[in-house]
Design a protein around this nucleic acid. Structure first.
Lengths: 126, 126
DNA sequence: GTATCATTGACATGAACATGCTAGCGTTGT
DNA sequence: ACAACGCTAGCATGTTCATGTCAATGATAC
């Protein structure tokens, strides 16, 4: 890899990046589509992966495989970041009380009171 | 809906909950599977939706339709809160380094204020 | 006691996700 | 100049998501 990059070495083509990161070139392109790791391009349109991106791809691989999560899920998290409105809405929904059943008290009246309280919270979380 | 619930009214069966929330009964069961809204059960195993849960289902519907997001994505966000290791890892990945090449990654984000309310949501008790 | 409703499990389907592979056409290194 | 490589577009396949529907069995209401 060179392409008029005399002192800009450490820049890999997609095949090379694929090699060292464990992803396939196809997947690298796909990952780019999801917005997770977007390399810059050469004049001619070739993807150029810098060390930071390569690192990122490696850790991404790790993250995905060890925790069994999909790229789409991470893409969504990315969306949360870039779309402030979305993030806020999701956040609000989640902070406004979980609907887990095990927290259900045996006493029905008590439960009722609690739910009433919960509803109040859900109303204006701000 | 009654089932020996003399003073525990405001508790809906799945069909009733479906009616008022706009989801189908099928979807309510599905949503339960994803862990997003889990109703408690009657002695006989019937799902019982309280006002809080109904509210939650309504807002969920809103969230999903207005922002065009999937239940799976939200389920993942839920996972982020319940699995601290995961949340940390994902957080780290996103905060550590640029995804975009031209954008100067002088960014703080990803930190949605979960830390504050974490223990509220973190009740393992399985 | 019986009609009505719920439960779980299974099968079905269209859309989206995750990947691979091919084809035709530009880019790059020597 | 030309071989080697990358790019995009598209097709293909297996998987998960999101839903619906149907069947057999059990719970509730009156």
């Amino acid at each position: 890899m060179n392409m008029l990059a005399l002192f800009v070495m450490d820049v890999l083509t997609i095949a090379e990046a694929a090699q060292t990161t464990g992803w396939s070139a196809r997947m690298l392109r796909y990952i780019e589509q999801t917005g997770l790791v977007v390399p810059r391009r050469s004049e001619g349109g070739y993807r150029l992966y810098g060390p930071a991106q390569v690192q990122r791809l490696r850790t991404l691989r790790d993250l995905v495989t060890t925790h069994d999560i999909g790229l789409a899920e991470l893409g969504f998290v990315a969306r949360l970041q870039s779309e402030p409105g979305l993030g806020a809405a999701v956040n609000e929904w989640f902070t406004a009380r979980p609907a887990r059943p095990e927290e259900t008290p045996e006493t029905d009246w008590l439960r009722f009171e609690q739910e009433k309280h919960e509803r109040l919270l859900t109303h204006r979380t701000r």
